[in-house]
Simulated assay, not measured.
Amino acid sequence: MTHTSLQITLVALALAGAGLVHAGPSAEAKAAYTHAKDRAKADYKVARARCDLITGNPKDICVAEAKAAQVRTVEEATALYKNTLKAYTASRMKIASAHYDLDKVKCAGLTGNPKDVCVSQAKATLVAAQADAKADKRAIEARADAREDKREAEFKVAMEKCDAFAGAAKDGCVAAAKTQFAK
């Protein structure tokens, strides 16, 4: 799953309104999670073996790329498995850190001002990715709060409408409103 697909998954989660509720992972989700972790470990070993054929900074970059790919795979699988807003945000933060580590290794091969610029750019990219993850989390939480506030207001209106009835009709109206709004 690419960075973009993780963000799409996060947006889909937000639109579905399931970002703040966790029903627990299914057996299929656990199997997929375990498979993804095993695949990440195997892919890392293969990539790392290819890196051993290289020397110097290119080897360091190769190893860092392999590690970043492993972190991405494991973190995306973890976020999907846990299926919570907190897990998606933590996943994005860890992936950003892994890419920052990769960028620093790439910068190590440079000298002078180009190295300084490279390190500054790497840090700026990390800060931007982390800020985006935090902002997305806050936006999703705000939408969920707004949705709950709207639902509560609609429930109050429904209950107010029930006041126009008496006896069994009112009881039926109240029961219907409570069922409709899961109260």
Results as ranks from 00 to 15, higher is better:
Tyr81Pro: 01
Pro58Met: 14
Leu80Arg: 13
Ile54Thr: 14
Val74Cys: 01
Ala69Gly: 11
Ala69Thr: 04
Asp52Pro: 00
Thr78Glu: 12
Glu75Thr: 05
Glu75Met: 14
Lys59Ile: 00
Ala64Glu: 04
Pro58Ser: 15
Glu75Asn: 11
Tyr81Gln: 13
Ala69Phe: 03
Thr78Asp: 11
Glu65Ser: 08
Thr78Trp: 10
Arg48Thr: 03
Ala47Tyr: 08
Leu80His: 10
Asn57Asp: 06
Ala49Trp: 08
Ala68Cys: 08
Ala64Met: 08
Ala77Glu: 09
Thr55Tyr: 09
Gln70Trp: 08
Ala49Glu: 15
Asp52Trp: 12
Gln70Val: 00
Thr73Ser: 13
Glu75Trp: 07
Asn83Leu: 11
Ala64Tyr: 02
Ala47Ile: 02
Cys62Ala: 14
Gly56Arg: 13
Val71Phe: 03
Ile54Lys: 13
Ile61Lys: 11
Tyr81Lys: 13
Ala79Leu: 03
Glu76Gln: 12
Lys67Thr: 09
Ile61Ala: 07
Asn57Lys: 11
Leu80Asp: 10
Ile61Met: 09
Ala47Arg: 06
Lys67Leu: 08
Arg72Trp: 10
Leu53Gln: 13
Gln70Tyr: 06
Leu80Gln: 13
Ala68Asn: 08
Ala64Pro: 00
Glu76Arg: 06
Ile61Glu: 14
Glu76Val: 12
Arg48Gly: 01
Ala64Arg: 04
Ala79Ser: 06
Ile54Cys: 01
Ile61Gly: 01
Thr55Leu: 13
Leu53Gly: 07
Ala49Phe: 07
Leu53His: 08
Ala47His: 07
Leu53Glu: 13
Asp52Gln: 15
Cys62Leu: 11
Pro58Gly: 13
Val74Trp: 04
Ala66Ile: 05
Ala77Gln: 08
Asn57Val: 10
Gln70Pro: 00
Arg50Ala: 15
Lys82Ser: 03
Asn83Arg: 15
Glu65Met: 07
Gly56Thr: 05
Arg50Leu: 11
Ala79His: 02
Leu80Glu: 12
Lys82Glu: 15
Arg72Leu: 11
Gly56Lys: 13
Gly56Met: 06
Lys67Glu: 11
Ala66Lys: 04
Asp52Phe: 06
Thr55Gln: 14
Thr84Lys: 06
Tyr81Ile: 05
Ala49Val: 03
Ile61Leu: 09
Cys51Ile: 05
Thr78Lys: 12
Glu65Lys: 12
Leu80Ile: 02
Asn57Met: 05
Ala77Val: 03
Lys82Asn: 12
Val63Met: 11
Val63Ser: 02
Ala68Tyr: 06
Thr55Asp: 13
Ala69Ile: 01
Pro58Asn: 15
Ile61Thr: 06
Glu76Pro: 00
Ala66Gln: 06
Cys51Asp: 05
Ala79Gly: 01
Ala64Cys: 05
Thr55Trp: 10
Arg72Gly: 01
Arg50Ser: 11
Gly56His: 12
Ala66Leu: 09
Cys51Pro: 01
Leu80Phe: 05
Val63Lys: 07
Leu80Ala: 11
Arg48Tyr: 14
Asp60His: 11
Ala69Ser: 12
Thr73Pro: 00
Leu53Phe: 01
Cys62Met: 11
Glu65Ala: 06
Ala66Met: 10
Leu80Asn: 12
Arg48Ser: 14
Lys59Tyr: 02
Val74Thr: 08
Ala77Ile: 07
Arg72Asn: 10
Pro58Val: 13
Arg50Ile: 01
Asn57Glu: 04
Ala47Met: 07
Lys59Leu: 02
Cys62Gln: 10
Glu75Lys: 11
Ile61Cys: 09
Cys62Arg: 08
Lys82Cys: 00
Asp52Glu: 15
